[in-house]
């Protein structure tokens, strides 16, 4: 089984955690990475991509609606939109906030579970709310790989803990610095 998409959810403290994750990411780990990071409606347009781009070679983009999902790209959910995936392309929505959030991690992850099932890796990072828990449970139920940032190492432990509670544990619980190594094993090690 090869993994075809890595979905990541982050909230409070997410920028630091995401930066650390991208810093450690080997270039060979090339499935598309799709991030739902909670942020304010007024956040500077393009600001998050620019910050994350400093940590990784591959392009970091806010996708347009129906943009094809490409390997070796990092995609960031646009502020004030839900980001969903379907059939190799993105789809956006302005529907109600879910768990008080738009973008919502649950919305992204549930669409990932439906479209990618066992070919998906879902990762829940630091945060102070419950978004992502239902979504991670959906990825798990669909046969995908689940990873949660070790709550003890997270800037805010509530979100990883909520995800672990609802999904009934995860395949891996790791400090964020060790997640790139796991991704290498899962995405590259498996091919060798």
């Amino acid at each position: 089984m090869s993994y075809e998409l890595i979905a990541i959810g982050a909230s409070w403290g997410g920028l630091h955690a995401m930066s650390a994750l991208l810093d450690g990411l080997a270039p060979e780990v090339d499935p598309p990475i799709v991030l739902a990071q909670h942020r304010g409606v007024d956040s500077l347009r393009g600001g998050l991509e620019a910050l994350l781009q400093k940590h990784v070679e591959r392009p970091v983009r806010e996708p347009d609606d129906k943009e094809p999902i490409e390997r070796a790209h990092v995609y960031v959910a646009p502020a004030d939109y839900h980001l969903l995936v379907e059939n190799g392309a993105f789809s956006l929505s302005t529907d109600e906030r879910v768990q008080f959030a738009r973008p919502s991690i649950d919305v992204l992850f549930e669409s990932v579970a439906a479209a990618y099932a066992e070919r998906a890796i879902g990762i829940v990072l630091t945060g102070a709310n419950e978004d992502g828990a239902r979504g991670l449970a959906a990825i798990k139920a669909a046969g995908g790989m689940t990873v949660v940032q070790d709550p003890a190492s997270a800037e805010r432990r509530f979100m990883p803990e909520a995800a672990l509670a609802l999904a009934g544990g995860a395949d891996a619980i790791l400090p964020v610095g060790e997640i790139p190594g796991l991704l290498y094993e899962l995405c590259v090690g498996a091919r060798a």
Partner: peptide, 9 residues
């Protein structure tokens, strides 16, 4: 309609 959003609705 786009299937992912449709399913949510």
């Amino acid at each position: 309609y786009a299937p992912a959003s449709l399913r949510r609705r």
